[in-house]
Amino acid sequence: MSENQSQTHTLEAEVPDGAEVTEEKAAAAPTAETPETKAEADGEVSAETPEALAATDDGDESTGERRSNKQAVLDEEGDIAADYLEELLDIADLDGDIDTYTEGGRAHVSIVTEGNVLVGKDGEVLDALQELSRLAVMTETGRRSRLMLDVAGHRDKRRAELTDLANDAIEEVKSSGEQVRLSPMNPFERKIVHDVVAAAGLVSESDGEEPNRRVVVLPN
């Protein structure tokens, strides 16, 4: 499957009123060990990349072969995560379409569904499902995954909100000459803000400890 090419996995099950992913149902789904560093997987700090994971010891391997190996690694991650999520949704008696694609050197999985039961308050359920999907990949392949999961377009909406927030902070820093401290965010959200600030020619840093770690935008 080529870069940005997607696959769709479809589940057709009735969604009972008030359906929830209960602890009992989630416990019946596959589990795996925890990755060493969640921040690395979310991209805020450096981590092993699919390029490094896919590379072989053959110094004469062509660029085309390395690219093909990288794509195969990402395709495999997406397929494993999609199968895991299909099983989990089936256990929870929820329905939805699951799309897989690659973008920015990562495998992406998107659950197309209605409602926010799989998103949860402040994306907490979504974040948990993403971690479970990464763990399922690690159990199957022995590799840590930087796979990204989205449900009902939640992350795209959040990205737009964070971009606006970062731009507001940038304008405040430029006009006041003082640093601006933003509210606590998870690693994925902080990475978005850092990228927007860097693109504007300013510097930002993360400060504090999880779960209260936040971005500080600094004046030049």
Rank of each mutant, 00 (worst) to 15 (best):
G123L: 02
G123S: 01
E124N: 14
E124Q: 15
E124T: 15
V125F: 08
V125I: 14
V125K: 11
L126T: 06
L126W: 10
D127G: 12
L129N: 06
L129V: 09
L129P: 11
E131F: 14
E131N: 13
R134G: 00
L135A: 14
A136C: 03
A136D: 02
V137C: 06
M138N: 13
M138K: 15
T139F: 12
T139K: 15
E140W: 02
E140I: 04
E140V: 00
T141V: 05
T141K: 07
T141H: 01
T141M: 03
T141L: 02
G142A: 00
R143Y: 15
R143D: 14
R143W: 13
S145M: 07
S145Q: 07
R146F: 08
L147I: 04
L147P: 07
M148A: 11
M148I: 13
M148S: 09
D150W: 00
D150M: 05
D150N: 05
D150Y: 02
D150E: 03
D150H: 01
V151K: 01
V151Y: 06
A152G: 10
A152M: 07
G153P: 04
G153Q: 08
G153N: 04
G153I: 05
H154Q: 06
H154C: 02
R155E: 00
R155D: 08
R155W: 01
D156A: 14
D156C: 07
K157L: 10
R159F: 14
R159T: 14
A160N: 13
E161N: 09
E161W: 04
E161P: 01
E161K: 09
E161L: 08
L162D: 03
L162I: 03
L162E: 08
T163Q: 12
T163D: 13
T163W: 09
T163V: 15
D164P: 04
D164M: 08
A166H: 07
N167H: 07
D168R: 02
A169T: 05
A169M: 00
A169H: 05
A169E: 03
I170K: 01
I170A: 05
E171A: 07
E171K: 00
E171F: 03
E171Y: 07
E172S: 04
E172R: 01
V173L: 01
V173D: 01
V173Q: 02
S175E: 14
S175K: 10
S175Q: 11
S175P: 02
E178I: 04
E178H: 13
E178C: 06
Q179M: 09
Q179E: 14
Q179D: 11
Q179K: 13
R181Y: 12
R181C: 11
L182Q: 07
L182N: 04
L182V: 06
